[in-house]
Write a protein that binds this DNA or RNA. Structure first.
Lengths: 236, 236
DNA sequence: AAGTGGTCTAGACCACCAT
DNA sequence: TGGTGGTCTAGACCACTTA
C-alpha cells in the first residue's frame, strides 16, 4: 500500500477525462456510483475529486453534478488575463482579429510548441482594447494538427473567450500557462495598430499555454503599451 | 446551522495565530486535542487545518506536528521571487543593501501602505544580483510602527531571506502580494548601480505585500534590467 | 419528491519522527 | 515505543437544483 488510494482514483478519473468520456455539459456519474465503480469509499472518491477541482480540471455544482471544468468569461478574466487599466478595474478586453494564416513554424515556434521543424502552425494576430483604449498587439501560434480547420471567421464569430473556442471547437483544454515578461521597443506593427510612437517603450509578454500532462498547445507573444495599462500579477 | 462548522474552527485558529499563541517553532496541540477543544470531530478539525495549510498559514509535518508556516529560502524563491536569468534557471539573488533611512512617508507611500500622511517609514535600497549579473535595483518602504528598531546591520547580517527577517525579528508574516508591471526608462540611480546606459529600457515592478486579513505591510518598487533576465509569472 | 453535492461524525489503521 | 499527522471507511443528515 505505498501509493495512496485516492491518487490512484485521481489518475483514473484524469485518464477518463482525457479519453473524452463526460464531454462538455454531461455530468460525471454521482459520487456513490463513482466510488463503487472504483471500489473505494465515498470519502476517498471525494478526496480525489477535491484535488481535480483544485486544479480546475473538474467543477462541482451542488445539486446538479460534477463536470469537466469549462472556460467561461470569468475564469479567463481572472486566471488568464493580466492586463489592467491604470484605474485598477478588471475588464474583459475587446479582441479584434486582424489576420489568421497557416504557415510553417520557424525554429523558435517549433521549439516553444515542441513540434518538429517545418510543422504547420496557425498564426493569429489580435488587437486588444481595454476600457476603450488600445492596449496590446497579440500574436498567437497554434499547432495546426490540433486545430485543423481553424479559420478567421471562427475567431471573429465565436461566442465566449478564445480558450472557450479552443475547448468547444477543438477539444483543447488549456489548464495553465507560464509567461516571461521583458521590456521592449515599439515595432512598426505595434506603432500602426496601437496608434503610438515608435519611441514608446513597451512590455513583451511571452506565454506558453499547456493542457493535460503539461503538453504545450499555444504560444503567444503580446506587446503591451503600459502608458495607460499595466501587467498585473499575484504572489503567494 | 448556516455557516459550516469548519469555517468557524478555521476562524478561531486564525485568531489564535494572530494573537501569537504557538509562536515560531512550537507546534499546535495535536489534532485530537484541538478537535476536543473546539468541540468538533477530528475530520472537521482537519478540514479547517487543510484550508489554512493551503493558504500557507499553517504547515504540517508528518510525525512532528503542525506549525505556523515560516518563510524559508525555498518558499521565498518559489512564491515571492519572479526574476529569472534568461537561461531559465531559478536562482536565489544576492542582495546588497545600499542604504536604509527612516523618513516621512510621501503621499504615494502612505496611500500604498494605508498610513496617515506624515507617518514614518523605513526606506531600504537593495541591489539584486542574479547568476552573477546585476539584475535589479530595489526600493522597499516599511511602516516604522511595525518595524521599530530596524537598522542596516539587521538587514546585512541577517541569516535567511528578507521575509524571514520580518517574521522573526518583527513578527510580521507576509502571506501574499500583488504586483504591477510597467515599462520604464533607466534613471540615474539604476544606471549607476547596475552599470547600464541611461538608454536602457527596463521593467518597473511595484509590489504591495500583505499579512493576515490583507493588511499591507510592505511596498516595493523594483526596476529590472531585462537584457539578461526576465520577469516570470504563472497562470491558471 | 428525487437526486446531487456538502458537511459532520466516530473510529480503525498506516507512515513517519523523536527518544 | 509513543506520539504525530495521513489515509480510509461507512453512514447520517443538510442544502441545493430540477422536474
Amino acid at each position: 500500500m505505498n501509493a495512496p488510494l485516492y491518487l490512484d482514483v485521481r489518475r483514473k478519473i484524469l485518464t477518463s477525462i482525457t479519453l473524452g468520456h463526460w464531454p462538455n455539459g454531461t455530468p460525471l456519474p454521482n459520487e456513490t456510483k463513482l466510488a463503487r465503480e472504483f471500489g473505494v469509499s465515498v470519502g476517498t472518491l471525494r478526496k480525489a475529486v477535491d484535488e481535480l477541482v483544485q486544479d480546475k480540471i473538474l467543477a462541482r455544482q451542488q445539486g446538479r453534478g460534477t463536470f469537466v471544468a469549462t472556460h467561461n468569461v470569468e475564469r479567463t478574466l481572472h486566471d488568464f488575463f493580466r492586463i489592467r487599466h491604470n484605474d485598477g478595474v478588471s475588464r474583459f478586453p475587446e479582441i479584434e482579429t486582424l489576420s489568421l494564416r497557416k504557415i510553417a513554424a520557424d525554429e523558435e515556434a517549433s521549439q516553444r510548441l515542441q513540434l518538429s521543424i517545418g510543422a504547420k502552425v496557425y498564426r493569429i494576430i489580435n488587437l486588444l482594447t481595454v476600457g476603450g483604449l488600445p492596449a496590446a498587439l497579440d500574436q498567437i501560434f497554434l499547432p495546426a494538427e490540433r486545430f485543423e480547420g481553424l479559420n478567421i471567421d471562427l475567431f471573429r464569430t465565436r461566442t465566449g473567450t478564445i480558450y472557450h473556442l479552443y475547448q468547444n471547437s477543438f477539444g483543447v483544454n488549456v489548464l495553465k500557462a507560464e509567461e516571461q515578461v521583458r521590456a521592449c521597443k515599439c515595432g512598426a506593427k505595434e506603432s500602426r495598430a496601437l496608434g503610438i510612437s515608435r519611441a514608446t517603450i513597451m512590455l513583451e509578454v511571452e506565454r506558453i499555454s499547456r493542457t493535460y500532462y503539461d503538453v504545450p498547445v499555444e504560444w503567444r507573444c503580446t506587446r503591451v503599451n503600459t502608458q495607460h495599462h499595466y501587467y498585473s500579477s499575484e504572489l503567494g
